[in-house]
Amino acid sequence: KQKQEELSALYDGYTAKFGILNSRANRIAFDQDSSYSLICSLENLDEEGNFKEKAAIFQKRTIKQEKVVTSVDTASEALTVSLSEKAVVDLPYMSELSGKDTKEIVEELRGVIFEDPITGKWETADEYLSGNVREKLKIATSYAETKPEFSINVQALKQIQPQNLDASEIEIRIGATWIDPKYIDDFMGEVFQTPHYLLDPGAVKTSFSNITSTWNIAGKNAETSRSFANTTFGTTRVTAYKLLEDTLNLKDIKIYDTFDERRVLNKEETTIASQKQENIKEAFKDWIFRDPERRQKIVETYNELFNSVRPREYEGSHLTFPGMTPDIELKPHQKNAIAHILYGNNTLL
C-alpha cells in the first residue's frame, strides 16, 4: 500500500508539470526510451486516446504473489505439487514435502503413477497409459513374469487397449509397404496362376527394399507371352509381372514407340495397359481377404502397426501461474493446453 501511495504521488507530481504520459509531448521526449511503452501502461485511455483513469496498479496488486509450498499432508497433494513445480513425478521431492518415504508414497498412489519397466522412471497414469500401448503391454507382461510389482501395469494396460479393427474396417491398397512380400508371391500363384516351378525356386519372386522403398519382381519375363498371366493381366507390349511391379510402386504405366530415335507415347497401348493395371488392383482387392487364415494374420498385423497408439489426455487443473494477474482466470481447456505444452514437449495443440 505504501509503495502504491509513493507511485501515485510521483505520477501526480509529474503529470501536473508535464501532462499525462501518453501525451504527444511526452511521446517525443521519451522517443529514445525503450521503456516508454511500459510507462504508458500506468494510464488507461478511452477509444479516442483521451485519459480515462489511472491503471489498476495504483489501487491493487496486479500479479499473483508466488506461494512456495514447503509441506503437504498426503501423497496425492505431493504429486500435485511435484507436477506443478517440476512437471515430473519426483519421488524424493514428494517425500520431502509429505514427510513420507518413497515406498509409502508409491503404495498410496497405486494406479495413479506407474513405473516404466525399461527406464525405471515413474510416470502419471495419463502419460504411461498412452502412446503405443500394445507394445507397452508386451513389455510389462514380460517384466511381470519375474517382477510381480509390474502386474498392476499389465492390468491397467489391458483395460485401455484399442478395440481391434476387423477386415471390413480395413482397406488394403496394393503396394502398401507393410504387406509381407510373400503375400504378393501367393497372389501371383493363385491369381496369375504362376507355375510352381517358377515360384518355388525363386525364379519369379517379390522383394521390397526398405532402403529405397521400392518393390521388385524378379523374373518378370520368365513366362511366355501366351501364359495365363500375360494373356489375362498383361498386354502384347508389357508383361503382367511388369504391370504388377509398377502397380506395387504406384507407377502409371506408359508405353512408348521409337521413331527415328525419338520416343512417342502410344496412347492406345497405354490405355490398354492402364486398364490391365486396374484389373490387377481389383483382383488383389478381391483376393487379399478371401482366405480366412491370411485375413486373420493381415488384420493382426494392421492392428499392431496402425491401431496401437492411445493419445494422451493432458490435464492441467493442478497448474499454478505465479506472476499472472489475478484478474484473469484460465479456463480448464486453457490449462489443459498449457499442460500439453509442458509435458508433451511440443506446442502442437
Rank of each mutant, 00 (worst) to 15 (best):
L79C: 11
Y14D: 07
D126T: 14
Y197K: 13
L129N: 07
E190S: 11
H318W: 03
G131S: 08
L250I: 00
L157T: 02
R290W: 03
P326E: 06
F18E: 14
L199I: 12
I20K: 08
K182G: 00
T325W: 01
A125M: 07
I338H: 05
G13Q: 14
D90S: 10
N26V: 01
L342Q: 10
L165P: 02
D116T: 06
V89M: 02
S227A: 14
E43R: 05
E77L: 06
K64S: 12
K281C: 04
P181N: 07
K220M: 11
S227I: 09
I341G: 03
W287L: 10
I179N: 00
H333A: 08
I160K: 05
E115R: 13
T235V: 08
G99C: 10
L21C: 11
A283L: 09
I105L: 15
W287N: 07
Y143G: 02
L250P: 00
K64V: 06
Q155P: 01
P311F: 08
K86R: 15
D31W: 00
K205D: 04
G111K: 04
S151Y: 02
I28M: 12
W215M: 05
T320R: 07
Y314H: 14
E85D: 15
A283W: 05
T214R: 14
Y143N: 03
D200P: 00
P117S: 13
G189M: 06
N346V: 04
F192R: 01
P148L: 05
F58K: 01
Y143H: 14
I288Q: 04
D46N: 15
T74P: 11
L305Y: 00
F233H: 03
E6W: 06
Q334Y: 09
T235W: 01
T231P: 02
A125K: 13
L244V: 10
A140M: 03
Q163C: 09
E85Y: 06
L137A: 08
L198H: 15
A222I: 05
F306D: 05
K64R: 14
Y11E: 06
